[in-house]
Design a protein around this nucleic acid. Structure first.
Lengths: 351, 351
DNA sequence: AATTAGCACTCAATGACAGAGAGTGCTAAC
DNA sequence: GTTAGCACTCTCTGTCATTGAGTGCTAATT
């Protein structure tokens, strides 16, 4: 952990200056550049001395002898925790965001897709938005439909307007009567329960109540389990992949390709999105703080969204360690508020 | 159009040699390189003369004075029409393809997704697979379910195991009785029809038969139309975008970014995939044959898949004009046969 | 008449080299 | 404690000569 008092005010100002400048121009920043800003009324030589200290403490490094300094991962870490300024978004970006999200969207997934798009658009980085992992979704309806003699359709509706279906083949003789009875029992037993409450026990209960062959029961249960699995599965929306190529640090084709392939793998992305803050704070993984060595020069900012602490999904932005952390935070923050508001609209009359 | 007899055998052999070599090594190929192969028993000087002719006819060009030659778009066009050899796939690739597609997949969309993945994997280019545009899907079932007092769920099942749903909000008082009646009428009137047969006329007919308020009818019809719209919509699967970065012609970051963004836009891709051959031939759009100027250095190979000429979707591969046309064709060909076989399995007992 | 050896020529790519420029660390003076 | 001054370091840029692959043309050969 960074020891906060290690740096006095002057060192902080200088470090902030270096990080701000490097984020902006992607060039090592030298002592004269900082001195010219006259924010400290110091000459370049003094700043040089301070920079030597900062380097010794590990906050900045030199790409080579007698070049300017660039922030280290530790430097960025200190920056996001103590130095970074959050400005409000410029007016034109706010307008853009509202244009993208204010139109009435009925389906939750379409809304989340739009959020992902607008985030990558506004930030200029790669966005990842993870739909809520819905273990606590409340079942609102279960319906069995015979598509034809040997196929059965099961539809499960949970709150939030999410509908999942599954078709199963079978060889049993399922009459309309049986179906009607199954429908009644299943609805009575399952509606109002959350999907993670549906376990073997409940299923056995149901099996006892309906007087149909075990064969038929198995078919139906298999289908319902398929639906629940789909409801619990995580949807991932990634946009702005091409933005990765904008940053000079990835001008090496091999590296760029490696990154694009990395971001294509859901198995890689999902663990990255495990934000441990259940409140609304932001979590930063900077460069080597990521476990994957392939991500040593990447940072990811994550935070959660959702109404009233329920139904939490995750929003993330991935970019080079030299990321405009402040700008990204304010953009996500603004967009998240809008998203939450829209989510409430969609979910309000659900129980 | 290319006049086939413009080129004698010797010129053809030389052109083929140039294209093959250039595809392989991405380097302009000179007369000595071809002479060394001793396929014609000619010296480099003779070949030089022939190459000068080929250049004058527009089949090859020189990147600069006194460099080797590279094929022009016209050269590639002649190549794919007359010179290209189709080898069968190496054994290990065949194994890989079977591993990807032979496992039992129930859902048509999952199957198509797998096809897209394996094509980009095997070819090393970017794959695009377009799901069938289903105007002729036969409705197998329509089901209305009251989710709660003010929301109605409509589920439409068509053949091929495709299920689409839509939830509509309403303020009408829809009782179970009304719902039951609606369910019966809708099923009777719509099952067995294709989705493009569902027009205003049929809907009006139905409206007359059920004796429920116009308000309720409108709600239901709106929902059903929503489902049909979803059924008719085209799904697009794109994979191997990162493969674009492998080719030296796109080592310029700006260009690479431009391409990635281009391929992200469905509005761009869908028109490209309009293959006019309803049989199983391949269609090539080479470089400047594409309408978009941004695609002047890209080629796209498309062909159709589907069982018995019905339910046609499109498979495409996008890469630089310097694409391994022969290899791609044989890969698509093989994969398509497997796909068709699987599709028949999924669709066989549908009517 | 077709082919080819030979030759002069062109141009990209490579590497060596010098000079400019941005930056540093250190020392001595303020 | 701050800074002016200076020697030094290292990248970057441009120049220049060299190399090498390839060409087109001409004259000789088959």
């Amino acid at each position: 952990m960074v020891w906060d008092n290690e740096l006095n005010d002057r060192k902080r100002t200088i470090l902030k200056s270096i990080v701000d400048d490097y984020i902006k121009y992607a060039q090592p920043v030298g002592s004269r550049t900082i001195a010219r800003k006259r924010m400290l009324g110091l000459g370049s030589a003094t700043i040089r001395n301070e920079m030597a200290d900062l380097e010794e403490l590990g906050y900045i490094t030199q790409p080579y002898t007698s070049a300017g300094r660039i922030p280290s991962d530790k430097g960025y870490r200190f920056y996001v925790e103590h130095l970074m300024q959050i400005h409000s978004l410029p007016h034109n970006e706010i307008v853009k965001i509202h244009q993208a999200l204010d139109e009435h969207i009925e389906e939750i997934n379409q809304l989340i897709k739009n959020v992902s798009l607008i985030i990558s658009d506004i930030t200029g980085y790669t966005s990842v938005v993870m739909s809520p992992q819905i273990e606590s979704a409340v079942i609102k309806s279960v319906r069995l439909v015979a598509v034809d003699e040997n196929r059965l359709l099961v539809v499960v509706v949970v709150n939030g307007g999410i509908v999942k279906d599954k078709i199963v083949r079978h060889r049993a003789n399922i009459t309309e009567d049986i179906l009607e009875k199954l429908n009644q029992v299943f609805n009575k037993e399952m509606v109002g329960k959350t999907v993670d409450q549906i376990d073997r026990q409940i299923i056995l209960n149901i099996q006892n109540k309906v007087k149909v062959s075990k064969e038929v029961c198995d078919i139906v249960i298999k289908a319902i389990e398929g639906c629940i699995e789909k409801i619990e599965s995580i949807d991932l929306y990634i946009d702005g992949l091409a933005n990765m190529l904008n940053h000079p640090e990835f001008s090496d084709m091999l590296r760029a390709r490696e990154i694009l392939e990395l971001l294509n793998e859901e198995d890689v992305i999902i663990p990255l999105m495990k934000n441990t803050n259940k409140d609304r704070r932001f979590e930063f993984k900077i460069g080597s703080e990521n476990e994957l060595t392939e991500m040593k020069d990447l940072s990811i900012i994550t935070t959660v969204y959702g109404s009233d602490g329920k139904r939490l999904g995750t929003i993330g932005v991935i970019g080079p360690t030299r990321m405009a952390y402040g700008r990204v935070v304010s953009a996500i923050n603004y967009i998240r508020e809008l998203l939450n508001r829209e989510l409430i609209k969609i979910l309000d009359d659900d129980t």
